[in-house]
Design a protein around this nucleic acid. Structure first.
Lengths: 217, 217
DNA sequence: GTCTATACTTGGATAGAC
DNA sequence: GTCTATCCAAGTATAGAC
C-alpha cells in the first residue's frame, strides 16, 4: 500500500531516477502539509517545493490524494521505526513515560504528527479518503497497546482498563496535544505536562503496592 | 468579535432580514464544515447549502475565512451555554464524569466539536487564521479549569496536578477523541471509554481516603 | 439586501514534445 | 521520465441590475 499509483511498467533499468523523483515529491508533500495544511497541499504547491514539474504528481501517483497518502505512509513508517527502537529496552511505567516525553518532543520538532492530524482532518473532504487514512493509523494503536501491555501489564489498573481502550485514548491525546501545541506555539507548556504525568505514575505506582496483582514470574 | 465583517451602515430599520441571512449562512457554514471539512467549505458550497447567492458571503462577512470564524463563534457560544448549564449542579468528581460522558455523546451527535477540529487543522492554511482560532478556544480552557476546580479541588491530586494543565490535557483529549471517532465512525468504542474513566475515578477516590487533603469546611 | 453576470486566480488533470 | 503547453472545473471577489 506504500507504493500505490505507479504507472503500468515497473521493472526495466533506470528506475532509480524515478524512485528519486517520487521520494522528492513525498518529502515535499510532507513539508507542505506541515506548513500549509491539507487545504494548502496542492499539486502545484508541492511540486514547486520539490523543484519539479507539476505533471509528475499525476504521472507517479495518479492524484494529489494518493501522493498525500504516500506521504502519510512515509511518516508513519518513519515514526514506527523510531518508536519501536525507543521502547526496546523499556520495562517499567516510569521508563515508558520518559520515552513518551522524549518521543513527543521529537514529534514537535519534526512535525510528523502534524501530517497525521492534517490528513485525518482533511479526510472528510472526499468520500474514500477517510478509510484510507484509518487503515494507516491502525499500526499506531497496536503499537501503543503493545507498549502498554509491556510496561503496565503487572499493574492492578490493567484489570480495570483494557489496554486497547487505553491505547485508543493515548493516541487521541497525542493527536490533540499536537494540534493545540501547533496552534498556539507554546511548546513548553505541553512538555511540562509530561513531568506531571511522570509524578502521577510514580504516585499510582505507590498505591499499587497496596494491591499486588497477579504474579507473572 | 462575533459579528465582524458587517458592512458600513448598521442601524436603520430592516436589519432583521439581514440578520436572518447571516444566520442562514453561519448555519450552512457549520454544516458544510462538518460534512466536507475545512478544505471543502468554499463560498459556493456554503451558499448553495443555505439556498442563497454566493456573493452574500462576501457582502456580509468580507471573506470565507471570516464566515468560518463566525461559525466557530456560534458553536463555541452554543457549547459554552450547554456546558455551563450541565455542570450547574455538579459537585463530585463522579458526577462530573457522568456529565462529561453525556456532553461528549451530545457533541458526537451534533458534530459541533468537528467544527472546532476542522478550524484548528485548517488554521495553518493562512497566516493570521491561527491566532483568531486560538482566541476563540480560550473559553474552553477556562471553562474546563473551573469545572475541575469545582469538583476535584478537594482531591489530593489537586496538589500534584495544576488544574490549568489538566484542563489543557482534557481539551486536547476531547479533540483527539472526536477526531478519531469521526474518522472510523465507531461511536460505541469511545463511549465505553467514559465507563472505564468512571471506574477509575471511583477507584482513585477510594485511594484518596488514605491521604485526606486540606479541609475546606 | 439580494440577485445575475462576470473578471480573475488557482487547482486538477491530460497531451504531446523532448 | 520529465518538461511545456493547455483544457477545464472550481474558487474568490467585485460590479451592476433589481
Amino acid at each position: 500500500m506504500a507504493k500505490s499509483g505507479s504507472p503500468s511498467k515497473v521493472a526495466s533499468g533506470s528506475t532509480e531516477r524515478s524512485a528519486n523523483t517520487r521520494r522528492l515529491l513525498v518529502d515535499a508533500a510532507i513539508e507542505t502539509l506541515k506548513d500549509h495544511g491539507f487545504s494548502g497541499a496542492s499539486a502545484r504547491a508541492i511540486s514547486e517545493r520539490a523543484g519539479l514539474n507539476q505533471g509528475l504528481v499525476f504521472y507517479h501517483f495518479g492524484s494529489v490524494a494518493n501522493l498525500l497518502l504516500a506521504a502519510l505512509d512515509a511518516v508513519s513508517d518513519d515514526r514506527m521505526l523510531r518508536f519501536s527502537a525507543a521502547i526496546e529496552n523499556v520495562s517499567s511505567p516510569s521508563e515508558l513515560m520518559d520515552v513518551a516525553a522524549k518521543i513527543f518532543r521529537e514529534d514537535l520538532d519534526t512535525g510528523h504528527v502534524t501530517v497525521l492530524v492534517e490528513m485525518i482532518a482533511g479526510a472528510s473532504s472526499s468520500p474514500g479518503l477517510g478509510a484510507e487514512v484509518a487503515t494507516r493509523i491502525g499500526p499506531w494503536f497496536t503499537f501503543t497497546k503493545d507498549a502498554i501491555d509491556k510496561t503496565f501489564g503487572a499493574s492492578p489498573f490493567a484489570s480495570i482498563l483494557p489496554s486497547s481502550d487505553v491505547a485508543f485514548t493515548i493516541v487521541a491525546l497525542f493527536l490533540g496535544l499536537e494540534m493545540l501545541t501547533h496552534l498556539d506555539g507554546d511548546r513548553e507548556r505541553v512538555l511540562s505536562l509530561f513531568g506531571h504525568a511522570q509524578q502521577l505514575v510514580t504516585l499510582l505506582g505507590a498505591f499499587s503496592a497496596f494491591a499486588p496483582p497477579k504474579e507473572t514470574s
